[in-house]
C-alpha cells in the first residue's frame, strides 16, 4: 500500500480496446475486456469528481492512522470511483478537486470551502 510521494496528477489508464478508463494506472489488464500491456494507454485524470458519500472515521486499529478523519467515496468525471480523504465538504453531491498534503491525496470542494 505504498502511497506515491506525488499523488498528482491522478494517473489512470484508458483501454484501447473497450474504451474503459480505470484508476489507478496499471498494466496488468483491463477489468472490462482483458486487454493488457500496451493495450492500456496511460492517461492523466482531471482530478475533478463528485462526492457519493462521506463520513468521519472515529476509530482505526492502526495507531499510525490518525483519527478522527473524513473520508469520501468520489466518482471522478472520467468514471472511476475511489475512496480518499476530503476537506471542507459537508454533504454528498458536492463537486471536488484532487489535491495533495503531507498524507497524500485529499479532495477539496471545487467551489471553495463549504460549497454545496
Amino acid at each position: 500500500m505504498s502511497e506515491p510521494s506525488h499523488p498528482l496528477p491522478l494517473r489512470g489508464v484508458r483501454c484501447g480496446a473497450c474504451g474503459r478508463t480505470a484508476f489507478p494506472a496499471q498494466e496488468f489488464g483491463c477489468e472490462g475486456c482483458g486487454a493488457y500491456g500496451a493495450g492500456l494507454e496511460p492517461v492523466e485524470l482531471t482530478g475533478h469528481g463528485t462526492v457519493l458519500a462521506l463520513l468521519t472515521v472515529y476509530e482505526h486499529p492502526d495507531p499510525a492512522v490518525s483519527t478522527p478523519a473524513t473520508i469520501a467515496g468520489v466518482q471522478l468525471d472520467e468514471g472511476p470511483v475511489l475512496r480518499a480523504r476530503v476537506s471542507g465538504v459537508r454533504e454528498a453531491g458536492v463537486a471536488v478537486t484532487a489535491a495533495a498534503d503531507g498524507n497524500g491525496l485529499i479532495f477539496h470542494s471545487t467551489n471553495g470551502a463549504g460549497a454545496r
Binding site: M1, S2, P24, A53, L54, V57, H60, R85, A92, G104
Partner: peptide, 27 residues
C-alpha cells in the same frame, strides 16, 4: 500486495467501507 497505490491513507477498513454505504443508503 498488488503493488497498486491505494489513495485512502489507510483509512478504508471494513467498517469504513460499510459506513460509506450506510451514508449513501440512508440519504
Amino acid at each position: 500486495l498488488t503493488g497498486l497505490p491505494v489513495p485512502d491513507a489507510g483509512l478504508v477498513i471494513p467498517p469504513v467501507h460499510y459506513g460509506l454505504l450506510a451514508e449513501e443508503y440512508l440519504r
